[in-house]
Design a protein around this nucleic acid. Structure first.
Lengths: 153, 153
DNA sequence: TTATTACATTGTAATCTTTATAATTAGTTT
DNA sequence: AAACTAATTATAAAGATTACAATGTAATAA
């Protein structure tokens, strides 16, 4: 268990370094707050909302403003480091962009699970020819009930 | 042109009748406002926001409240007559549920174009086995630049 | 090193969308 | 028509996000 945890930690450590390089090469200044938001996004198991991030970091940065969280999330989004996931009424969730993956979302408890699937190039290609659009990307999510909620039924 | 227009009109007229039947059989009362919202949804070429609908109908119903629009959209959604499409910061858009289709969205002007494609059952099935979720549905959208915006580039 | 400049952060107010609530009105049923 | 139920209205409230002005901090040039 201990080894596993260390391994995990090393993994995210590398990802953070990589992300910081990405910021640097994009000419984005690396501030303590910015670094903390990024670190939280990478280490978090959940797909946090802006408020989740704000709450998680207010211990370390008692004076940090929500605006800072939003500003930095926008910066990260602009350079393609994170993705914003939007769902109707509730707040947006932010997802650190590692490998390509889709999401399966529990309609009962809101849990979001990653799910790998070869990208839907075919659909994009067809859309391009049929609509005349120049396609840049797509969004796909699957909704259902997670195992935990199924049990509680 | 005239004939074509008439034909279109007949078509939506049938759809409205059908939708009204659906409401009746669901035990939903048909009020003038409700009917107007439904009619607008079916006839509108665009995928309107709640505010679009409100603005479009305030001539006919000077005293109608935004709440009425939202209330009725919720009713329509609950009985499966319309779908809500949510995009990040902006307001939700509402789509009258005819046949199954996906959307292609212009990132430059926001235009939404319908696009038919066989439903992605395969992806749902894989997700089910891999995640243990009981899948109910999915959401898929394609983003890009529409022909008009490409020209203006 | 210091001055200058550019960018980030903070705190707060404002905006925007959506929902909640209570009072009124309209439709249904008996 | 009376009683009951549901829908509408008007308004207030909530919640998420952004705008803005002031302040702070890092990078660059002198």
């Amino acid at each position: 268990m201990h080894e596993h945890h260390d391994h995990e930690h090393d993994h995210t450590h590398d990802e953070i370094k990589e992300a910081v390089e990405h910021l640097k090469s994009s000419g984005v200044r690396i501030t303590p707050q910015r670094h903390a938001v990024l670190e939280y996004l990478i280490e978090a198991e959940i797909h946090p909302t802006a408020d989740d991030i704000y709450k998680a970091l207010e211990g370390k940065f008692p004076n940090m403003s929500v605006a800072t969280v939003y500003n930095n999330l926008r910066v990260f989004k602009d350079i393609g480091l994170v993705k914003e996931l939007t769902y109707g009424d509730a707040s947006s969730r932010f997802d650190y962009n590692t490998t390509k993956h889709y999401h399966v979302i529990c309609e009962s408890c809101g849990k979001i699970v990653d799910f790998h699937y070869p990208s839907l190039d075919e659909v994009e290609a067809l859309a391009e020819t049929v609509t005349g659009f120049e396609v840049s990307h797509h969004r796909m999510e699957i909704y259902g009930t997670c195992p935990d909620c199924k049990e509680k039924h």
